[in-house]
C-alpha cells in the first residue's frame, strides 16, 4: 500500500502562487474571467448541472410579473432563479421573489387534508376524496336551503346569499375562471370576492 503523502508547507505555497490572481492580472489576464479562476473554483460545479427539467415560471408574489426559471431533478425542485430574458426583471429577483424556492420547500407546508369537526378541539387527517365528497354535500345542502328563485315581486334572481367565496388574486386566470363559472354561473352564489378590494 502506497503511503499517504500529506501536503507540505511548500505544496501549499506552490498552490497559492499558482492560484493567486494578481501576477496573472499583471500578465494581462482578465480579473473577471481567467485570472479569477483557481484550483478551488475549478472543482466547483453549477448547482443546475444535474437538473433534468427546466420550466418557465412567473414569480408568485406581487403583480410586477417577474419571470423565473425553475429547475428540477428526479421530480424534486432544486433551484429557482430570475429569467434573464424577461424585459421586466432581466434575471433579477427581489427578496420575496428570491424566496420562491424557500416557499415551495417550506417545512411548514402541509401535504395532508386536515379536518376539524364541529366543536372539536383538534385537527384530524382525512383522505382527500372523503373531504371532497363532504364539501360537495355541504355546498349542495346550503345551496338548497338558501336558494331564492324569485323575489316576492316576481323578479327572477336565481341566487343564494347563504354561501360565500373569498380569494383569487394569488391564483391562475384559469382557476379564477372556473371559480366564477361554477360558483356564480352554476351555483348562483353572489358573495364572490378576492383581494382586489383589500
Amino acid at each position: 500500500m502506497k503511503p499517504i503523502r500529506r501536503r507540505t508547507l511548500a505544496d501549499h505555497a506552490r498552490g497559492f502562487l499558482r492560484d493567486w490572481s494578481l501576477p496573472r492580472q499583471f500578465r494581462g489576464e482578465s480579473p473577471y474571467s481567467d485570472a479569477a479562476k483557481s484550483s478551488g473554483s475549478a472543482r466547483l460545479r453549477p448547482r443546475l448541472e444535474e437538473a433534468d427539467k427546466v420550466g418557465t415560471n412567473i414569480c408568485p408574489y406581487c403583480a410586477v410579473g417577474c419571470a423565473q426559471l425553475m429547475y428540477a431533478k428526479d421530480g424534486t425542485l432544486i433551484h429557482v432563479e430570475g429569467d434573464p430574458r424577461s424585459p421586466i426583471n432581466q434575471g433579477t429577483l427581489c427578496p420575496k421573489g428570491a424566496a420562491t424556492f424557500g416557499w415551495l420547500t417550506s417545512e411548514l407546508r402541509m401535504s395532508k387534508v386536515l379536518y376539524r369537526a364541529p366543536h372539536s378541539d383538534r385537527w384530524e387527517e382525512r383522505p382527500l376524496d372523503w373531504a371532497m365528497d363532504r364539501i360537495a354535500h355541504l355546498a349542495k345542502q346550503t345551496r338548497d336551503e338558501t336558494f331564492v328563485h324569485k323575489l316576492p315581486d316576481g323578479t327572477v334572481v336565481n341566487h343564494t346569499l347563504g354561501m360565500a367565496s373569498l380569494g383569487g388574486a394569488t391564483l391562475d386566470n384559469e382557476e379564477n375562471y372556473l371559480i366564477k363559472k361554477l360558483f356564480s354561473g352554476g351555483l348562483g352564489m353572489v358573495w364572490i370576492e378576492n383581494q382586489a378590494r383589500v
Binding site: C62, N173, N176, N194
Partner: peptide
C-alpha cells in the same frame, strides 16, 4: 398579487 389584475379581468 401575482394575478390580481387577472382576477379583476376574470373576476372573482
Amino acid at each position: 398579487h401575482s394575478s390580481i389584475q387577472g382576477s379583476t379581468d376574470i373576476p372573482t
